[in-house]
Amino acid sequence: MAASPEKSRPSAFWPLAAVVVPLVGVFARIELRGVENLPREGAYVLAPNHNSEFDPLVVAVAVWRAGRAPRFMAKESLFKVPVLGAALRATGMVPVPRTSTSATQSITAAQDIARDGRGVIVYPEGTLTRDPDLWPMRGKTGAVRLALGGNLPLIPMAQWGVQQILPRYGKLRFPRRSKVIVEFGPALDLSAHTATATQPATLTRATDELMARLAEMLSGLRGLPAPAERWNPAQHGQNETGRLES
């Protein structure tokens, strides 16, 4: 794919890509779909489903192959890890404070992204899906909050096949090279929500629309009907780590 200026310009992504792309290729044959939906230039928020600890690598390679530099919202604590923290800072990853959910910080992050013309990858589920059949579960409002706060296109991304490489909470299956389909969807229309973009009810509705779109896209990849309702960990006695509450 034609590279954007942020990919073709020398950066810390180049040496990382030289290592990560071939490594991921050992495990995954990635098929890209809908690449035309990812903006060639400018800022955006990319919202993928999350069903394996391995899929961030697949998502990063897919975005790189599509012509953009992959930047994630990453836990602030990761920036303190030697070597990893330096790589995160050098590639412009966005730190997320563990205890902060304030709208002000989200809007500030979105404004920074928009100003710099960068894209950012945000998992709307916030963690691995808890749905027993690996469908997208109930989402959190972070991706929508960023998109609305910065007036950025919100691009849904569905991926399927990574669970054959590393099952959720399982062990890496090697040697194994599995087909993984990654689809970029058209930007979600958020125009109906802009007038009340900071209201919790609005953010929840928009997030529900995003998760429904992801489920619809994943249904197309899997050839199965998606469940009518999203899995809600709170209703099944689970916390954010997937463990049962006592």
Rank of each mutant, 00 (worst) to 15 (best):
Y169P: 00
N151L: 02
G150V: 00
N239H: 04
N37A: 07
P97Q: 01
S246T: 14
E245M: 12
L244W: 09
G42H: 10
A18Q: 13
R68W: 01
V144D: 09
V45P: 01
G242L: 00
P124K: 04
P82L: 11
A87R: 09
R138C: 01
P136W: 06
T99K: 00
N232G: 04
R145Q: 14
P227T: 02
L146K: 02
L152T: 04
M157A: 15
M217T: 09
R138M: 09
L152Q: 06
A2C: 07
I155C: 01
N49V: 05
V122P: 02
L16C: 13
L172G: 04
A86Y: 13
T99I: 00
M1C: 10
F13V: 07
A17F: 12
L154P: 09
G92L: 08
M137Q: 15
R118A: 09
L23Q: 02
T196D: 14
A66M: 08
A86W: 15
L46M: 15
F27P: 03
R65Q: 14
L224I: 13
Q163P: 00
M73Q: 08
R168D: 01
A206H: 09
A60H: 06
A2S: 14
L148H: 07
P15M: 14
R138T: 10
S8P: 02
R145H: 13
A147M: 08
S219M: 12
L32Q: 04
V144P: 06
P22C: 03
G117Y: 11
G117D: 12
R205M: 10
V83W: 13
A110M: 00
R68A: 06
I121Q: 05
R173G: 09
G126S: 06
R145D: 03
G150A: 03
A103C: 01
V59C: 05
V26N: 07
G142N: 05
P39R: 12
G237Y: 04
Y44M: 15
D116R: 15
A110Q: 00
Q199F: 01
V144S: 07
V26T: 14
R230F: 10
W135R: 09
A187W: 05
A87S: 13
A110D: 00
F13G: 14
G223H: 07
V180Q: 05
R138I: 06
P227E: 05
V144H: 11
Q163W: 07
W64D: 10
T198K: 13
L128T: 04
S52W: 04
A192F: 03
Y123T: 04
A201V: 10
G67Y: 02
I30H: 03
T198R: 15
S8I: 10
V120K: 06
H50E: 08
R213H: 13
G237W: 05
V26C: 12
A28N: 11
L38P: 09
R168S: 11
N49P: 03
